[in-house]
Design a protein around this nucleic acid. Structure first.
Lengths: 145, 145
DNA sequence: TATGCTTTTGATTTTCAATTTCAATTGTGT
DNA sequence: ACACAATTGAAATTGAAAATCAAAAGCATA
């Protein structure tokens, strides 16, 4: 899985004529070994602990590259921080976001995906990507109330 | 429709013990007369043209109030600007967002809504709100390519 | 209508994520 | 090793959003 993604990135880099750099390797390693939905700041701090030389800007830039390469996907929640989740081209999942404890539960639903395609077709729209987030309270937070 | 919303806001204000102010009236008028999906900045500039006294902060604060009152809903697209769309409690629609021309097409789909509820139930999750955005190219932008 | 208390306002400052800048560094083909 | 372009990172900049706080405005009461 991790190797698969590294390979995917290398292919993307090669196709785009990007150079292979120490920093990108490190950032990719860290990104792949974090939990889902890291914010840039969070990842930056993690990396900084063992690689103090790596700068803010590079982390931002590189995560944008991963997104272009299809390894990552940007998610905007409502706390003003951009997060990135793991992704592989083609695969997709959506989110239940708990507003109580900020937990994120992932799910997939083929029927919803299919309905989206139908809607798009009806409007002459060509889908590139989509995002479905359901906000509310998870089972634990409901119980705790 | 506009009166209905004004009434809704007045009721909300009364229930919360908020005062009725000239600024809030003006901002509500402008908000209700704009197209869907205004950014705060956009609305602020529109208002400023005829009411130069009204400040940035007030527009931000007031839009948050409208959201609390159920008249507006925050939407985060990928341009770093928070937008607000018109809403009435209970009503909901989702978006096709064209990455070519930034057009936003609204749609509603009962089946998708129903599937979301099922998914939530399956996870013991209580839905408060949700957001579905489909990104891609609209018919015009596809043709223009 | 005046009084006194409280909310609201708005100019300004602050914050903070994200981007830009640019000189120095590094990767890569020759 | 050389040359040249891409990349990096410290620092500055931008820009949205929130916080601050004295002044102004709303509102209940006399």
């Amino acid at each position: 899985m991790i190797l698969e993604k590294k390979k995917a990135f290398n292919e993307f880099a090669a196709a785009k004529g990007l150079r292979s750099t120490r920093q990108r390797d490190i950032i990719l390693d860290f990104f792949l070994s974090t939990h889902q939905h890291v914010s840039v700041e969070e990842l930056y701090l993690k990396i900084k602990a063992s690689h103090p030389g790596i700068g803010h800007a590079t982390v931002y830039r590189t995560l944008k590259l991963f997104t272009e390469a299809g390894l990552a996907r940007e998610i905007l929640l409502h706390d003003g921080q951009t997060r990135y989740e793991h992704a592989l081209a083609g695969e997709h999942h959506d989110h239940l976001v708990c507003t109580g404890c900020n937990a994120i539960i992932e799910f997939e639903d083929e029927t919803i995906e299919k309905l989206q395609k139908e809607i798009a077709t009806r409007h002459g729209f060509m889908i590139r990507s989509h995002k479905l987030e359901i906000y509310g309270l998870c089972a634990e937070c409901r119980a705790a109330q």
